[in-house]
């Protein structure tokens, strides 16, 4: 029995019309994420990875091709897809609790259940003590934790992350990477992470899609085998990271060797 893929992006192309001309933001993107898979999209700025996320969210439905979530076409945003933006985007006039609870406005659960869910998710991100604080009283890392709790409080099967840790300092970023990894794998969540941090992608993802710009397209899809074990000092971790960096054109020499490597992996 084959389980239907959780997220299917089928032949998606997207144009933007700017100042009389058209810009091809995405060109024939084909990508799937199985249920419970952690997919990373890496690429330089302008390669369309954030645009792709907006399409999956349903914020923009003006594109060619099809995007299916659990077999259903995406027509609009839905509570089945939680979203974490690069900036925490908390509503400054609501407390931490208020911000997380805001995501439950459209939920049909009872008040008591909602309260429990909020408390549970604040606990999940370790911010129970700050339940009554306002966003302006939080550090960047704490605010982003609240945003993660808000994205998860509906227990969505899908979690979309748009460079969620990009604005944080290095230490906080490493800590939150561990938290994200734990939360996503414990919850059996299908996650799509957009990042330009290759290290982060290798550390978190089961599969990495490398994107190239002009027009935005997928250059390669690399599986992250379990043997990499996600230990940043493992030779295989470093090799995979260098491969991805090479595909992004960061190191010329390794890039060419890496490309051959990818062909073998993709063929396998």
């Amino acid at each position: 029995m084959t389980e239907a893929p959780g997220l299917e992006i089928l032949g998606v192309s997207k144009r933007f019309h700017v100042a009389g001309g058209a810009v091809q933001a995405l060109s024939d993107i084909n990508l799937t994420a199985r249920r419970g898979e952690f997919l990373a999209l890496v690429g330089a700025s302008g390669c369309g990875k954030s645009t792709l996320l907006r399409l999956i969210l349903g914020l923009d439905t003006d594109y060619d091709g099809r995007i299916l979530v659990d077999g259903q076409p995406v027509l609009r945003p839905g509570l089945d897809r939680g979203m974490v933006f690069q900036e925490h985007r908390l509503l400054p006039w609501l407390t931490v609790t208020g911000n997380v609870a805001a995501a439950l406005r459209q939920s049909r659960l009872g008040q008591a259940e909602k309260r429990d869910l909020v408390a549970q998710h604040l606990d999940l991100v370790g911010l129970t003590r700050f339940a009554t604080a306002y966003p302006s009283q939080l550090s960047g890392g704490m605010a982003q934790r609240v945003a993660i709790a808000r994205a998860l409080v509906n227990r969505p099967p899908f979690l979309l992350l748009d460079e969620p840790l990009g604005a944080l300092d290095a230490l906080t970023r490493l800590r939150l990477q561990d938290e994200l990894k734990r939360i996503v794998s414990d919850g059996g969540i299908t996650a799509v992470l957009v990042t330009h941090d290759v290290d982060e992608a290798v550390y978190l993802a089961n599969r990495i899609a490398v994107m190239h710009p002009n027009p935005g397209r997928i250059a390669a899809i690399l599986p992250v085998t379990d043997s990499v074990e996600r230990d940043r000092s493992e030779p295989e971790f470093i090799r995979l990271r260098d491969t991805v960096l090479g595909l992004l054109g960061v190191r010329e020499g390794t890039g060419r060797r890496a490309a051959a490597d990818v062909d073998r992996r993709v063929a396998a």
Binding site: P77, F85, L91, W93, R105, Q106
Partner: peptide, 27 residues
Amino acid sequence: GKFRELAAVLTFSRIDTVRLVALPAAL
């Protein structure tokens, strides 16, 4: 715009958008 987008992502009703986003933002 980022707050309007958030309201869309959280699938806010029109009333919630006014009550939780528009009114406090304009306060």
